[in-house]
């Protein structure tokens, strides 16, 4: 590690320390209401108490299985639809603007319809998360397969590659980086939308518990839930990035 990256690391650690110090000081001096920002120690003890309860793990399980179902649905439909559209230039020109145009509208608008159709149970959250994640996955699948360099395909064809070989050795390796970007964005949109759906209207799950502890005015437990979500998303993000870099490097 050279000197400049060492000093930029130290700025990052200083920022973290500053944030933590500000948190501690603001709560210790009582300048911020305990309701909006409980002291770090209280949040930590609440988190430790929380992970020892069964209710915590069942809520996490509900959210995890909802995200998993929604993501798998979006994965299958998004990749399939994206690949089929990418096979024809006319289909790309016709359908791609519709999908990207719809994606700029917050799909959250349609959440009341999901509740109407699928009820307040996990079904509506699966459908909502899958719908939201479908868009980046389909768009990136189209981009990955439709923007392939024609030279490579022609070269593979002229060297006598059959369809399967071209798919396996030219299309797939060329498309994977862009495809994986879509899969990563799709996953985190899926996670956020399931959490959001649970927060707005549901009966179980992590999002429901954040909303519930806020309604019950239990800031310690609410911050414990929030910090759990924040830590999980940071870990998942780091995993996704390192996975994506591995794919790129190959």
């Amino acid at each position: 590690m050279d000197r400049s990256s060492l000093s930029s690391r130290s700025v990052q650690w200083a920022f973290l320390a500053l944030a933590a110090g500000a948190w501690y000081l603001a709560t210790a001096t009582g300048s911020v209401s305990r309701l909006f920002l409980p002291p770090p120690r209280e949040v930590f003890t609440a988190l430790v108490a929380l992970v020892q309860t069964n209710a915590f793990w069942s809520a996490v399980l509900v959210t995890a299985s909802t995200v998993a179902k929604a993501y798998v649905l979006a994965l299958i439909i998004g990749i399939l639809a994206g690949y089929l559209v990418s096979r024809s230039k006319l289909a790309v020109a016709t359908i791609e603007p519709v999908i990207s145009g719809l994606f700029t509208i917050p799909i959250t608008l349609f959440f009341p319809m999901f509740i109407l159709f699928f009820g307040v149970g996990t079904g509506s959250k699966v459908a909502y998360g899958a719908t939201y994640a479908f868009f980046p996955i389909a768009l990136n699948t189209i981009a990955a397969f439709a923007n392939m360099e024609q030279r490579y395909l022609l070269a593979a064809q002229s060297m006598g590659g059959n369809r399967w070989q071209i798919f396996r050795y030219v299309l797939m390796p060329g498309a994977l980086p862009v495809l994986f970007t879509g899969l990563r964005i799709g996953f985190f949109i899926c996670l956020a939308s399931v959490l959001g759906g649970e927060t707005i209207s549901s009966v179980a799950g992590v999002g429901r518990n954040i909303a519930l502890t806020a309604e019950l005015m239990e800031p310690g437990r609410m911050f414990a839930w929030i910090s759990f979500v924040v830590c999980m998303s940071v870990v998942l993000n780091l995993l996704a990035f390192s996975f994506e870099n591995r794919i790129r490097a190959r």
Binding site: G196, T199, G207, M222, I226
Partner: peptide, 15 residues
């Protein structure tokens, strides 16, 4: 940017 902000929504409403 990577943190799902929606988990802070009840807090934002509270504040």
């Amino acid at each position: 940017f990577a943190i799902p902000q929606v988990s802070f929504m009840p807090l934002v409403i509270l504040i």
